[in-house]
Nucleic acid binder design. Structure first.
Lengths: 332, 332
DNA sequence: CTGTTAGCGCTTTCAG
DNA sequence: CTGAAAGCGCTAACAG
C-alpha cells in the first residue's frame, strides 16, 4: 500500500477545501448535500481514513486507554484485561497493555509512559506501596484503580477479599474443620491485608479453631512447594492464597500420597476457568474478573466523558463448593 | 498535573531555541556542552518529556505494534501475547491489543484500524480465509503472521501441528491403541488442515488402526459435550483438538463414570500451564507459546529496522507423556 | 455554507 | 554549532 491518502488528496479530488473534507468525515455541521457526496466518493475512491495520529494530536484525544498489569501470565489479570478490552472496543476505544512483569520498580515509569500515549490508565498494581501509588495518582489521571484501597478522587473497582475469605473459612468450619492453615501470598499486597482481617474476624468469632499462617507465593510452584509444610502443620483445612497456589498444592499433595478431600480439604480463591477441572474440582471463591474489567472500563469511560461521576465498585466473591473440600474425617 | 510542559517551555527556560532542545533530548549532533546541560536542567525542572504523539506524527513512527488475536480468553493466545509484550517492551516498544472475539467479519477492520495507530501488526487469525488474508496482507504491512501457511513476502511464526499430532498418534499407537478418535476443532482453521494431514499420514503408515473424526469445538464446554459421542465411538485413544477440549472431556468422562486412563486414554494439544494439573495430568504436545510470541516480535523488529531480513520460523511441539494416557487395556 | 488561517508539539532541513 | 522556518495531517475558529 502506497503511503495512504491525506485529507489534501481528498480535498483536491473533490474540489473542495480540506476543512470541508474534515467536516464531512466528522459528520459535522451542515455541509451541502451534493458536496458531501462528492467528498465521500473521493474519500472512498482514495480509500481515505483520517490519520489517527494527526487527529489525536489536535484533538488531544487518542481513543486509547492503557492497562497496566503486574503479570500477563496470571489468569485473573488476563480475564480483567479481556473484560476491559471488550468493553472498551464496544465504545470505540483501543487498549494499550503494559506488563510490569512483577518488577515493581518499573511500574511507575511504565504507567507514566503508557499514560502519555493514551487518554487514561487502568492500573492493577497490587504490590505497589501506598506511598508510591499516591505519588503516581496525580500523574496518571484519569485513572481507575483495580483492587486497591480507595483514595481521594480516584475510582476503584475492587473485590471484597475479606468477605470472600470469610465465606471460605466458614465453609470449612461448617465441614467440621477446626485446624486450618492459610497459605499467605504476597504479604504486602493490598488484598492480603483484607484477608488477614478476615482471619482475625474469623478467629474472634470461633474460639475453638486454630488457623496457622504459612508463608507462600502466588503461583503453582510455590503452592506445590508448600505441601510439606502443610502436611507438617497437621491442619485439615487449607486455604490457598489463590487458585494457582491451590492447584500446585493439590498436585503436590497427591504426589505425597495425601488424599484430597479425604485427608485434607483444600480451597482456592478466584475461580479461574480451570478451577472446575482440577481433580478433585476446586472449591473456591468466585471472582468475576471479566466483570471487574468491564466495570473498570465503565468508570474510565465516565471519567473520559465527564458525564456521570465515576464511582468505586465492589464485587463480593461467591463461594463455589466443589470436590476439594469435604467433612473433616477426624470429627465423624 | 497541569498540562505537561512543551518543548517551547523548556526552550524558553533554557534560553535556547526549540530546535536545540530537540537536539539535546535526542542526543543528537554535537550541541555545546554547557548549553546541553542547561537544557537538561530545564527539562528536568519542568518534568519535560517529548510528546509521543507529536513525535509519532513527524517521525512517522509510533513505537507501538498491534497484536490481533481471536480470543483473549484462550490460554495459548494469552501466552503468545505475553511473549510479544515482554520482548517488545525490552526493545522499547509498546503493544496495542485487539481481540476480535472470534468475530471473523470484524477481524479485517479491527486489524486495519489497529495498524493505522501502530508501526506494524502481528496477526493471529487462524480462522480467516486465505482469500481474505491475502487481501489484507498488503494493507497491514509490516506484518508478521502467526500459525498460518507461509505466503510471499510475509514472515510467519508457526507451530508444526502436523508433526505434533503425529507424535501423539504414535504415542497412542505404541500404547496399544488401535481405535482412535480425533475431536476436530474449527474445521477451517489453518492448523486443522495440518492435523488432518497428520491423520492421513498416520493412517497410511498403520493399516491396522482406525481413526474416527468427531466434530467438536475448541473450548471446555465443547469438549465436555463430546463425551457421549466419544463413548459411543468405542475408541480407546482420544486426541482432543487442544488442551481445553481435552480438559472438558476429561471432566465429563469422569462424570459419565468412564475412567481415564484405565478405560480410555485422552491426549490434548498445546500444553497450557494447567495441563500438568488436571487429573489425571494431561498428556499433550507442548507448544512454546511464549516463544512463538517472542519470535514474532523478533521478526517484527527486523521488519521495522530493515536490518536483517525477517524469516519464517517453525516450532516443533514436544510430546509430554503424562497420566491421561496409558496402555490399552484391551490388548494386554 | 465554505474557504482561509492558525496551530496541536515536535523534528529537520537550511542558512548563518 | 545554533536558530528560523517549514511541515507531519488534521481540526477549529473566524471571516466571508
Amino acid at each position: 500500500m502506497a503511503a495512504s491518502a491525506t485529507i489534501l488528496d481528498v480535498a483536491k479530488r473533490a474540489g473542495v477545501s480540506p476543512a470541508t473534507v474534515s467536516r464531512v468525515m466528522n459528520g459535522n455541521s451542515t455541509v451541502d448535500a451534493s458536496m458531501a457526496i462528492r467528498v465521500k466518493d473521493a474519500a472512498r475512491e482514495l480509500n481515505y481514513t483520517a490519520s489517527p495520529l494527526a487527529r489525536s494530536l489536535v484533538l488531544r484525544r487518542t481513543q486509547t486507554v492503557a492497562v497496566v498489569v503486574p503479570d500477563l501470565g496470571n489468569p485473573t489479570f488476563q480475564e480483567i484485561l479481556r473484560g476491559i478490552s471488550r468493553a472498551a472496543a464496544h465504545d470505540g476505544y483501543h487498549v494499550l497493555v503494559a506488563d510490569s512483569a512483577e518488577i515493581i520498580e518499573e511500574e511507575r515509569v511504565l504507567a507514566i509512559e503508557a499514560r502519555r500515549r493514551t487518554d487514561g490508565v487502568i492500573l492493577c498494581a497490587p504490590r505497589m506501596s501506598e506511598d508510591e501509588l499516591n505519588k503516581l495518582v496525580g500523574e496518571l489521571r484519569p485513572l481507575v484503580l483495580i483492587n486497591r484501597d480507595p483514595r481521594e478522587g480516584t475510582p476503584i473497582v475492587a473485590v471484597d477479599y475479606r468477605s470472600g475469605l470469610i465465606d471460605l473459612l466458614e465453609h470449612l468450619y461448617k465441614l467440621g474443620h477446626r485446624h486450618l492453615a492459610y497459605l499467605a501470598g504476597i504479604t504486602r499486597s493490598a488484598s492480603n491485608t483484607q484477608r488477614l482481617e478476615a482471619l482475625h474476624e474469623f478467629r474472634q468469632r470461633h474460639d475453638d479453631v486454630l488457623v496457622d499462617e504459612i508463608p507462600c507465593g502466588v503461583g503453582f510452584q510455590e503452592g506445590a512447594d508448600a505441601a510439606e509444610k502443610v502436611a507438617d502443620s497437621g491442619a485439615t483445612g487449607i486455604l490457598a492464597y489463590n487458585d494457582l497456589v491451590a492447584m500446585g498444592l493439590l498436585s503436590s499433595l497427591e504426589t505425597h500420597g495425601i488424599r484430597v478431600p479425604q485427608s485434607v480439604s483444600v480451597v482456592g480463591f478466584d475461580d479461574i476457568p480451570f478451577a472446575p477441572y482440577t481433580s478433585p474440582p476446586l472449591t473456591t471463591a468466585s471472582v468475576p474478573a471479566a466483570e471487574v474489567g468491564e466495570q473498570a472500563w465503565m468508570n474510565m469511560s465516565k471519567l473520559l466523558n465527564q458525564k456521570a461521576p465515576a464511582e468505586s465498585i465492589y464485587f463480593r466473591p461467591v463461594l463455589k463448593a466443589r470436590g476439594s473440600s469435604a467433612k473433616n474425617p477426624e470429627r465423624n
